[in-house]
């Protein structure tokens, strides 16, 4: 895949999310055709991945798992990138809009990451003979997932909305910074034990199906994030309409 294609698509999705946030008239309808497109493409992905695409050279039919596994991991990384972008934006200028967007991106990212890692495990079993392998990509994704589960737990354990927003933004940035360090250190650590797997040449139909899967999931990424965003916003307004509670300070143990 040319390097600019995923970036362009990601920029389009971010633009659509910003349009959803900023333009009220878009909010009601834009997600519907995109959800419909995603559903159609998902059904077609079953056909394309299972029937149309030729078997992979080494893994034969097991390689078909990659058409759904790899896009899931991409989507998780995109969602986490969006989340950390919102976190930085929040720290520069406090706004509950970016906070709500950060929350929804994190949750959607954890969903895609969890499904993606599980699929990777399913793929590893017939390919490597084990359910788990100390592959840097696998470890980095899992560590990222763990860090964002912690992020979501922090959000749900903090009542005060401003504290929650600031603290979770800081936590998100700290976890995101760790991603390249984890990747690098695991790769280095693991290289002592086994030969690093190298990217093989990828057939053209494979790339096309992979791209199809990525666009399918991009549609769902958009729909999930904006719908989750509406939930987060309505919770925020509901919290603000309540009479202000005296926040209970944690008692000194």
């Amino acid at each position: 895949m040319p390097p600019f294609v995923p970036l362009t698509l990601f920029a389009l999705v971010v633009a659509a999310i910003i349009a959803h946030v900023a333009v009220p008239s878009v909010r009601g309808w834009l997600w519907k055709p995109i959800a419909g497109l995603g559903a159609f493409m998902l059904v077609a992905l079953w056909y394309l991945g299972l029937v149309w695409a030729p078997p992979e050279q080494f893994m034969s039919d097991v390689g078909r798992i990659l058409y759904v596994h790899v896009p899931h991991v991409w989507m998780a990384l995109l969602a986490f990138t969006l989340n950390v972008g919102c976190a930085v934006a929040y720290l520069m200028k406090k706004s509950f809009v970016t906070d709500a967007l950060a929350e929804s991106a994190a949750e959607v990212g954890v969903y895609f990451g969890a499904v993606g890692v599980t699929m990777g495990s399913i793929w590893a079993r017939p390919t490597w003979g084990v359910w788990w392998d100390w592959d840097p990509r696998l470890i980095s994704t899992t560590v990222m997932l763990l860090a964002y589960v912690g992020y979501l737990a922090l959000r749900s354990f903090t009542e005060d909305p401003e504290r929650r927003a600031t603290w979770s933004a800081v936590a998100a940035i700290l976890s995101y910074v760790s991603l390249p360090i984890v990747w690098f250190s695991v790769r280095w650590w693991n290289s002592l034990h086994q030969v690093q797997s190298s990217p093989s040449t990828v057939d053209k139909p494979m790339v096309q199906v992979l791209r199809w899967g990525a666009i399918t999931l991009l549609c769902f990424l958009y729909v999930f994030i904006v719908k989750r965003y509406q939930i987060a916003r309505s919770r925020q307004t509901a919290a603000m309409e309540l009479p202000p509670l005296e926040a209970p300070r944690p008692e000194a143990a």
Partner: peptide, 16 residues
């Protein structure tokens, strides 16, 4: 619970 939940994932490269 919060502290190890947030801290341990970040510390994995340090541990290695």
């Amino acid at each position: 619970v919060m502290l190890p939940l947030l801290l341990f994932p970040v510390l994995i490269p340090l541990l290695l």
